[in-house]
Design a protein around this nucleic acid. Sequence first.
RNA 1: GGUACCUUGCCCGAGUGGUUAGGGACCGGUCUGCAAAACCGGGGACAGCGGUUCGAAUCUGCUAGGUACCUCCA
Length: 486
Amino acid sequence: MQIYNTLTRSKQEFIPLNAPHVGLYVCGPTVYGDAHLGHARPAITFDLLYRYLTHLGYKVRYVRNITDVGHLEHDADEGEDKIAKKARLEQLEPMEVVQYYTNRYQHDMEALNVLPPSIEPHASGHIIEQIAFVQKILDAGYAYVSEGSVYFDVEKYAKDYHYGKLSGRNIDELYAETRELDGQQEKRHSYDFALWKKASPEHIMHWPSPWSEGFPGWHLECSTMSTKYLGEQFDIHGGGMDLMFPHHEAEIAQSCAALGHDTVRYWMHNNMITIAGKKMGKSYGNFITLEQFFTGKHPLLTKPFSPMTIRFFILMAHYRSTVDFSSEALEAAEKGLERLTETYARLQKLIPAKDSTVDVHGLRERCEEAMADDLNSPIVISHLFDSARAVNTVFDGKGTISQEDLEELKAVWQLFVVGILGLRISDTGGVESGLDAYKGAVDMLLEMRLEAKRLKDWTTSDRIRNRLTELGFTVKDTKDGFEWSL
RNA sequence: GGUACCUUGCCCGAGUGGUUAGGGACCGGUCUGCAAAACCGGGGACAGCGGUUCGAAUCUGCUAGGUACCUCCA
């Protein structure tokens, strides 16, 4: 398959280092607040990649971290740890906050049908490894200790390696731009970044280290944990575009400094979700949490949107494009998904004929081709819609499909809709299986309605349909029967 | 200011130098007790101005508008 590698700014053939094994690392959430729509994007993008690589036969070790230490708050005077601040405000143990939001994150991800990663390591659980990593960088001569903190020596590093190769920045510009910042007396240069930070007295999340009682720097956990679980060289590192600089650039520098070589072979970055053209983010205060989408409780939402609608909405755009949120766009996605879902249910009921009048050939190949081209999910979806037309034509009795074609079509839908796009749809159009009695009862009511219709007893037939509609069912008459969903 | 990127029909959103993306909405038709769904058909587009080319939405230059990163951020 082809993958767009941010490092080379081009699509490249993906060749794993140790096939059939693939190492995949993705930057996970900082657990100090509820996940919003922006968090769903990388989760779903790399879930798609994970599912597709697995489909291709690779054995993927997917590592997605939980950041629970180290990130600094932008307006905090003393560089206070985000989680510590929130914890003090709410009078909770930091770990209690971490656990609370981790649980909620995982709950949201499950709702979005995002598969759990193979390993979900916490930064706080890898302090020892991070200290060792800092020591390695110190030993290599690319860091210095200053008043209990350890800083990465960007200038020294830039002499031996290419600092800025991922983001396209160069050190001279950085120097010109960041010299204005104050409060950086401990550092030799403003663009140096912390590997280990000495904790201030009011800072409650801290650990002992050779340099001070403190906490690891912002970028260190990813270098440390990716190396620990995927090795000194691994295949793919993913994350949001906003992490390219400084986070991923710093990661590259740290890893090269400590190990003497690059660790990541393919860098993949998903684009942002915007709202009215602006990036949706915490600092803009314009984000909508996933929970709010699911409940519809937000002024910008006209109604609740199911997790699958959110997932489908995100998959309808290519992961490297920005996607603009609006209630209208989401409603359009919802209707599209509904059409796909209903067609899927009908596909299960089709009765094969001697031969096909509809053409379903090449669907599998076209879908595979789209996926292999840097995960082009919108194209996959467009092919599925094309074949939906064929399914509905047969369902309407206006065409036929052979046994062989039908089986192929079912298999392709199962593979791409359910397996790769990860759309959780049931074969009864929304009702979970295992409720046979309940389904039987609804079927019986509709059988009675059918009988009433035969007798032209429209009063009874409408009464049944109207009552079912009131209860939340959707009833649709078909050529010689009915179908329903909840 | 620096760097990167974007601008497609009413809306969302793909795209290869020459052939229909797709979805939603809309209009017409078929089917139907009604409704819903489905199917068939339909219109419309590539920010503006130049250039390269037999031919450009697709390559190139300029202009306009917008976004992201440079500070925590998916």
